[in-house]
Every structure is written in C-alpha cells, then in structure tokens.
C-alpha cells in the first residue's frame, strides 16, 4: 500500500508555483485571529485571578409608571469569576412597612455588569433603599 501511494504521488503533476498573494494575506489575517484568541484566553487562563464573584447592586434610575415605581438597577461583578442566576433584592423602608422587591439575573461574567429592574409600590427616592445580591450559582 505504501509503495502504491508513493508511486501515485510521484505521478502527480509538478507542484504549483508560489502561493498567490491573497493566500498569504488571508493566512496572515487568520494568524492574527488565532494569536489574538489564544493570547487573550491564555493570558486570562494563566494570569487571571480566580476570586469569587463579588456583586455590587447599584441604582441607576427610578421611573414612575402606572404599574408602580420601576427602579432600574445594575449588578456589577467585581470578582474574578462569573456568577449565574444571581438573585438581587431591594428593600425599601422609611414609608411605613418595609417593601421588598427581587429579580434574578441569568448570568454576570467576571468584571461585567448586567442591568435589571425592581418594581416598588412606593417611591424609592423618598425612602431608604438597600440593594444587594442575595446569592448565585456557579457558572457553567
């Protein structure tokens, strides 16, 4: 089998001349893409820190609507690993009974932020609003 392959190879037409310019250009672009992907992922894999998710919840804006006060919040993951199913909670006090609203954010990658909304019956700007993340699942 090996000899047969060899003879067939020898029988094929003489190799082409140099690869065309376009081939070099596209290969160079491919090389840049591959190096960028491997470089960044490798840098992250080898040097990136692996601290647990540290999630800050911050108030962005409050909009009165006919269906309650919508408090737009954003959750910022300052930690070095990602969090999934992040439960965030806002407790509004100072206007009679304390009012709690909560939401779940699917996924917050490391050092990223994701927005969401909490809906209250009373105006959060008038009372004292405490925002925090209650828990999360490990990503993947």
């Amino acid at each position: 089998m090996a000899t047969a392959t060899k003879s067939r190879r020898a029988a094929k037409p003489s190799p082409r001349s140099e690869p065309p310019l376009l081939e070099w250009i596209s290969a160079a672009i491919g090389l840049v893409c591959a190096l960028a992907a491997i470089g960044f992922v490798g840098w992250d894999a080898l040097l990136g820190e692996r601290s647990p998710p540290a999630i800050e919840v911050r108030l962005v804006a409050v909009t009165p609507t006919p269906h309650g006060y919508v408090a737009q919040v954003e959750a910022i993951n300052h930690g070095g690993s990602s969090a999934a199913q992040v439960a965030i909670e806002g407790v509004l006090s100072g206007q009679g009974e304390a009012e709690t609203a909560q939401a779940t954010l699917d996924y917050i990658p490391q050092r990223s932020r994701v927005g969401g909304g909490l809906v209250f019956e009373h105006d959060p700007r008038a009372g004292r609003l405490v925002l925090r993340a209650r828990g999360f699942a490990d990503a993947s």
Binding site: P15, P19, W24, A27, L31, V32, C33
Partner: peptide
C-alpha cells in the same frame, strides 16, 4: 480548500480557515 500537498500551503490553508471561522 485547495488541492495542496505541501506543508507550507497546508499551514496557510489552516490559518486562513481559522480566520474565516473567527471572522
């Protein structure tokens, strides 16, 4: 994607293919 046999061409093809997939 070219009928090649030479190592240089194959390296170029493989890199170009990665570039195509990436882009």
């Amino acid at each position: 994607f070219e009928p090649t046999f030479r190592l240089k061409d194959e390296v170029l093809d493989a890199l170009a293919a990665f570039g195509v997939g990436f882009l």
